[in-house]
């Protein structure tokens, strides 16, 4: 069934959630709070029960290791009859395509979201299963996510792609996210998780930067996106050290100014629903 647009921040659906939808969203969130899948963090929006904020932390032994991938989801009024809309906000303001299936616009190509071919959404799925499907896109060889690419076009493509992703993960989804370069309005609870997770992964970050220092000055090529980037591990190492000092000294905080890339909450839910979601979130 054709759906108008994939972008939750551009979604124009007005009106209120059905009773089933708001009850289902709360249950879906509660499932994640009580039994959190590794590397997956969610919080309901304070003002709008339809909006979910999620961070997927890149899994160990993948080029996404330790990266913070911030997603915004918007559930339709008849959830779970239709799937939520999903957008990756961690794209260096639309400049980095982190995966063959996740565009620099933030669009996530996944059959259950109706943005790709294959098994469609089913109401038996829930927020955790959806987010786990997205997490599985961020795997150890993302090059081969591209449909039809069972073989490298040029030998070494997959390895070079991993080098590119690894660098951009450190640059954009670790340093950029911790410095909040793109001024995203990330909920406080998720920021706390980022601070803690950053310290846990810190030694790995440093190791990645040191192991790849010899690549500095060379050009990285993204086969799925135009544009060339230079490796800058030395600079990333300095940024990591500064961020660590701030997190340890508890002086780490984000810009408080309103963000331009913020979710445009086109409509607000009633106070009653807002209260429900903040109770669940706390």
């Amino acid at each position: 069934m054709p759906r108008s647009g994939w972008d939750p921040t551009e979604d124009s659906e007005q009106g209120t959630l059905t009773a089933t939808a708001s009850s289902r969203i709360k249950r879906d969130l509660m499932t994640i709070f009580t039994d959190p899948p590794p590397g997956l963090f969610v919080v309901g929006d304070e003002l709008n029960l339809k909006i979910i904020h999620a961070i997927i932390v890149g899994v160990m032994d993948t080029p996404y290791e330790g990266g913070f991938f911030y997603f915004v989801l918007k559930c339709p009024n008849d959830y779970p009859i239709r799937p939520p809309k999903v957008k990756l906000m961690t794209t260096d303001a639309g400049n980095v395509r982190f995966n063959p299936n996740i565009y620099s616009s933030g669009k996530v190509c996944l059959s259950i979201l109706g943005t790709w071919n294959g098994p469609a959404w089913s109401p038996a799925q829930q927020l955790s299963s959806l987010l786990l499907s997205i997490q599985s896109l961020l795997n150890e060889k993302p090059y081969f996510n591209e449909p039809g690419l069972v073989q490298e076009q040029i030998p070494g493509d997959s390895k070079r792609y991993n080098e590119f992703i690894q660098h951009e993960t450190l640059r954009v989804s670790v340093c950029g996210m911790m410095e909040n370069q793109c001024r995203l309005s990330i909920p406080e609870q998720l920021k706390d998780i980022m601070g803690k997770t950053f310290l846990e992964f810190y030694d790995q970050y440093v190791e990645i930067a040191k192991n790849n220092m010899h690549l500095d000055g060379t050009e990285m090529i993204d086969p799925f996106n135009k544009g060339r980037h230079l490796c800058h591990y030395k600079n990333l190492l300095l940024r990591l050290e500064k961020i660590r000092a701030k997190v340890m000294g508890k002086t780490w905080n984000f810009f408080k100014e309103p963000s331009c890339t913020n979710v445009d909450l086109k409509e607000r839910q009633t106070n009653e629903e807002a209260k429900c979601s903040s109770t669940i979130a706390s």
Partner: peptide, 14 residues
């Protein structure tokens, strides 16, 4: 089959 990349996780509410 030279390469297989699983990109979906199913978890039913069953």
């Amino acid at each position: 089959i030279k390469n297989w990349v699983g990109v979906a996780t199913w978890r039913w509410v069953a």
